[in-house]
Design a protein around this nucleic acid. Structure first.
Lengths: 228, 228
DNA sequence: CCCGCCCTCAACCGTTCGATTGATTTTCGG
DNA sequence: CCGAAAATCAATCGAACGGTTGAGGGCGGG
């Protein structure tokens, strides 16, 4: 184990700290500036640093920056994607809480982020109070989900969740969205073209559409696939 | 905030002003905060107000707010879209300069914004200095385009520009991406299905693809259309 | 143990799509 | 004024797609 704190679990020396230290990770200077201003507005929170992408954030953490909370965007143009960065950060010894703060709420992103160990998931259109509350909650180790995100997760778990494609179906829908024809998909996945068509029929039924292009649109709208 | 001006409204007393007054329009509180912080950092610029969507911005302008520059996002979830807001603002008497500051640079958006009378087009990943320079330039009435945007526009005008769809073609590609069939598109645009197919053939040729799904993928990748 | 779900494959058939060829009108710029 | 580009429409034909029906193997829960 590492480090200096006894491995008692959650809050080590930060327990007595009034100061919550926040590391801001976003590729947009404007957003970083806004988050820092918001954070600095809170009396018991301070910005511990800024990074423009996941790699820079990891460098800061390696260099000794010890935030309690990492505010991270998911979509970051060039650099490391937020999900990967989250995975690596939560794999560190005594990791900070990772609070995802991003623009869109697509199923794939949310699941991937939670799976990677994110503590919470906020949307950028959240009001300042919500961001503040989320930072405090994350510092206490609690999980925070923006209402739309929570609803989406629940709707997925819930029994009635129609818009739940199987893994194979999602995979095929993704290839369709890349512009591949059925025959190409069949070769790519080592299955027959008939099987591809069967999957597509199921996909159409679940999405309530009747063509591959409409399936792409519906899949994008439902957050099942993501446009690069 | 805006305090009082002479009350005369359109009087050119702002001409001698050192102060550039900026109205910030964005649906994300975080971004508004960041822009305001950036603007307030500049000695000769001040924020004249904030609005969460185009309608709110127009209300502020109606109520007497007289900014020199409007910093406006294009994508605004619920409210009026930025292009429409730009159109209405530039239609006002002695309108302020409208500087678009948005996340993505898709051809359709850029052209629509310029057509609506936007003075400039910046991307949110622009560094603060670029934003500052653009605000100053916009206040002087100059046109400012972020390099990627300028390149895209030039590539469109330039003769060799392969990825330059015509307006009609872009429109049709957008409808294809919404999942519409040729017949539906023809009805939507009040043209024959044959015409739709002709346009599609041209689109495929320009994008180097041979199916509508591949055209969607290529169009998204090239920034010709945008996934909602 | 059986039922249901997922993944796999097959054959048939009607519709849509993509490619080709050819034509008219308008508009814009040399 | 004339040529180029854009937008419109038509007809044809083979290929791809979408809908249907049917079926078999694997896997987990009741």
């Amino acid at each position: 184990m590492s480090g200096r704190t006894g491995g008692t679990g959650s809050t080590p020396d930060a327990s007595r700290a009034e100061h919550i230290r926040v590391l801001i990770v976003d590729d947009h200077p404007v957003v970083r500036r806004g988050l820092r201003a918001m954070v600095d507005d809170l009396p018991d929170v301070e910005a511990a640093g800024e990074a423009a992408d996941g790699a820079a954030a990891l460098r800061l953490l390696d260099a000794g920056t010890r935030p309690d909370v990492v505010l991270m965007d998911l979509q970051m143009g060039d650099g490391m994607h937020g999900v990967e960065a989250t995975r690596r950060i939560t794999a560190l010894p005594s990791p900070p809480a990772v609070l995802i703060l991003t623009t869109y709420s697509t199923d794939a992103d949310i699941l991937a982020a939670v799976e990677a160990g994110a503590t919470g998931y906020l949307l950028k259109d959240a009001p300042p109070e919500e961001v503040a509350a989320a930072v405090h909650a994350a510092a206490r180790g609690e999980t925070v989900l923006a209402p739309p995100v929570a609803a989406r997760l629940l709707g997925r778990v819930r029994a009635g969740g129609r818009p739940a494609l199987t893994q194979r179906e999602t995979e095929i829908l993704g290839l369709v969205a890349e512009g591949l024809a059925n025959k190409q998909i069949s070769r790519r996945l080592f299955i027959s073209e008939a099987t591809v068509k069967t999957h597509l029929v199921h996909i159409y039924g679940k999405l309530g559409v009747d063509s591959r292009t409409a399936a792409i649109a519906a899949g994008l709208a439902a957050g099942l696939i993501r446009a690069v």
